Computed example of a mutant assay.
Amino acid sequence: MKKPDILEIDITDKGLKINSELFTFPIDLNKLSLIFGEPDFFKMKYNDIYTWHEIGVLGYSKKKKQIETLEIYLSNQKDLKFSPRKLFNQVLKINGESYQEIKFKKNKKSDFVEKQIGNNSLYMEFNEKDSQYSTISITDFKEPPILQDPDRYDYKPVAGEKMEFADFNFKLAIIQILMYEKELLRPKFDLYEFVERYKDREIDVDEEGYALIPEVTAYFEKLEIDKKFASEITEIYQDGGDDIYLNMLCFWDGEDDVFNINTITDVEQFSNLKTLSLFSDTQFKEREYLKSKGIGVENIYIR
């Protein structure tokens, strides 16, 4: 892609001005490509991403070739497969004034600024280390929808006695059965529902979903399971396509041991458990221990 000789982006009350042309979202990809050059294309699960590497800009699209969001990379380059290889070093203004000269009030809980400029909505990440903005995302301003059941994922202690676990991954295997298969644990956790309702910061699943998201992990760590459900567990079969793993680590490729069960003493509280099928092999003494409990180990998938 040929880098434009001169590029000036001005986020104005009337729209997004790129050089001398005024745009409003969604912006036709072909029109942007006439200014920015041809982008690289990345097909994601929930949207398409177009990256202009030479100018440090990428665009998000849910409708084919209609850009709903532009993200400008200013500093602190991110190492994602779709991240621009270079940073934006052209002219960026807000209502005719350099963005660097404008002082915005940051969110109290996070290093970002959310601001409405005309019909544009800005999300600006601030890098304290460099004392400057790292990215600015620009999209069409929309009134936030009123969420149904906004407290859906608030912490709720069980009425009875809760289960205790020595191995968090064992707990996740139990959640898979009770929440997603038997539907005894409520609510049935959905990552995108959770993110939509999360209040303390904005979680970007497309960027953060390649690793465990701390707030999601914390939710499942805190989640209580009533001991009355212990009798429901007769078999544990770990599978890479299980809902629990896809909601915790949605872009997991199954090539690491992040969900391996390493401690099997949690079987003590499941008297009806007869079969374990695990991601990782168990040592001889553990097999003997399980055998003494009347539990078979089958279909071992060794990583």
Rank of each mutant, 00 (worst) to 15 (best):
D154K: 14
F88H: 12
S61M: 08
D256Q: 04
Q238I: 04
S20D: 14
T12H: 05
K199D: 03
L273A: 09
K109R: 15
S61K: 06
Y153P: 02
K78M: 09
E208D: 08
L290N: 05
S20G: 00
F141S: 04
F170T: 02
D5T: 13
L22T: 11
K93W: 08
L87D: 07
D13S: 04
N19Q: 11
I233C: 00
Y198A: 02
S271E: 15
N247E: 15
K45Y: 01
D167G: 07
G160N: 13
V91D: 10
N107L: 14
F165R: 06
A159M: 15
Y99G: 06
I6P: 06
E101P: 00
T69L: 09
E71V: 13
E215G: 05
I261D: 01
F141P: 03
W252R: 09
E183R: 07
K93T: 13
K171I: 08
L22G: 09
F126H: 14
D111H: 10
K106Y: 10
D256M: 04
I174S: 03
S20L: 04
W52A: 01
K222S: 09
E255I: 06
P26K: 05
D281G: 10
I138F: 06
G56L: 05
K3S: 05
A166L: 14
Q132G: 03
L29R: 04
R186H: 12
Q116T: 15
L7I: 02
Y210V: 04
P84D: 04
Y198I: 03
N247Q: 15
L178D: 13
N260W: 13
T139E: 11
N119L: 13
Y180H: 08
P145C: 04
K62M: 10
V113L: 11
I55E: 12
E215H: 07
T135R: 14
N95Q: 15
E215Q: 12
K199P: 01
N299E: 14
V57H: 11
F141N: 06
S271A: 13
S121E: 14
G56W: 05
S280K: 10
T12M: 07
D257S: 13
S137K: 14
F165N: 11
L273E: 11
F141C: 00
E224I: 03
T135S: 15
N127V: 00
K17L: 15
D256P: 04
K2S: 14
E54C: 01
K17Y: 05
E21F: 10
K182C: 05
Y155R: 06
C250F: 06
K156M: 05
L223K: 07
E193Q: 08
D5S: 12
A230V: 05
L184N: 09
F194D: 06
D79P: 00
A159F: 15
I236A: 01
K222Y: 03
L184V: 07
R303Q: 12
M163R: 03
Y198L: 03
